[in-house]
Design a protein around this nucleic acid. Structure first.
Lengths: 212, 212
DNA sequence: CAGTAATATTTTGTATGCAGAATTCATAGT
DNA sequence: ACTATGAATTCTGCATACAAAATATTACTG
């Protein structure tokens, strides 16, 4: 079996995103490279490489001479990101294989329903939501688009823990997922794309009040 | 006046993109870090940082232990990129200030017309085309979206020099630009967005035969 | 002569070192 | 007490150094 041989910068990036999801870093926090490198047990070089990729994804921002910091959150940016992801996912759905969509639609519906039943941990909720969207878009052959969506969503993760603990928003989201799945079952991808767009717009509205 | 103090990695990135536009590197060429660093008169560290950002934009790709190389071109990827940019620019137009659009529409029309007249150098043509799109989208308040468009377009520059020397495609493009501008003058942003999408789709078709 | 094993060389990936900018702290002056 | 000034410290940005992987070369064997 082949042992894992990935560049350190990628592993570091993943680890940092993990910690971001755990809520270890607050938005606006600036990063001490030496300290973080020591904590991770690596040198500053691959750490900086990871930080640069994260800056490229909008998770961090860098200022000359002042290093990196977690990009501060704002309603404006969140609106912008939601609009972007809505458009990109709608495009992905448009360019998906209809056969695939028909095929996974029942599964998508089932997941959405079982999701609306048990209210789990925030961590799980988000993972579940992500997996649902991944399954939805799994039939899209536009690889660059899927990569781009992943990248933009990475930039949105800074916002995800702000909504923690609210149950009603999630029920609404589940309803919307059901509607999308139903459109697909009915063989109406156009309606599904519209419902998907709504899902993002509504999700944005739901979270907006949570953002400073 | 404040003297320019940008990180080396950014200057290097810009220089590499410049050289890419000049056609210095062929797609698929792999990069020798030491040689390139020496040629640029910098050390490998900021060079690698620039390479990593370019890899994030899809201009380069990296393989473990094998370094970076200019990502090979393919019709599939070109189609994918065109679809993405079409959707993103259409979104940008949708979320643009209508007042701004009405305002710059005559200028856009003028530029498109004067463009169709004199056939210039390939280099100039592309710069002109880029500036035209920039002006078109200048009224979009979604900064993240504009950044993203810039980034995705950077990944497309590998393809731009493939079309060099064809005059008829450019005339067609100018026509399409005129149509977009006319829609804006007529106060029909919806139609303009559709024409913009067409512009990208047609541009894709025009170039497709040029790609191996 | 083809093919393969062993060795040498090149090149990447990571760590360390160093100069200068930014920040902090202390001190002096009002 | 508060601000300003300057030294001391911290930290970033870039350069260099080193180890391991990949590639090229040579030697050997059938």
């Amino acid at each position: 079996m082949p042992i894992e041989r990935r560049p350190l910068r990628e592993q570091i990036r993943d680890e940092l995103m993990l910690r971001l999801d755990r809520g270890d870093f607050a938005a606006g926090t600036d990063i001490n490279e030496a300290a973080l490198a020591a904590e991770l047990g690596v040198s500053r070089t691959p750490l900086r490489e990871a930080l640069i990729t994260l800056a490229g994804e909008g998770v961090l921002e860098s200022n000359q001479g002042r290093g990196f910091r977690f990009a501060p959150v704002s309603r404006k940016e969140f609106r912008e990101l939601c609009a972007i992801v809505a458009a990109l996912e709608a495009l992905a759905l448009d360019s998906s294989d209809p056969v695939y969509l028909k095929q996974v639609a029942p599964e998508l519906l089932r997941l959405a329903q079982e999701f609306s039943d048990n209210i789990a941990e925030q961590q799980d909720i988000e993972r579940h939501d992500d997996e649902w969207h991944d399954l939805l878009l799994g039939g899209c052959s536009n690889e660059r688009l899927l990569d781009l969506i992943t990248s933009v969503k990475a930039g949105m993760r800074r916002y995800s823990h702000l909504v923690a603990g609210e149950s009603t928003p999630m029920e609404r989201a589940a309803e919307e997922h059901c509607r999308i799945a139903e459109c697909l079952i009915a063989g109406d991808p156009k309606g599904a794309a519209a419902a998907l767009r709504d899902n993002w717009v509504n999700g944005m509205e739901r979270m907006m009040s949570r953002i400073p």
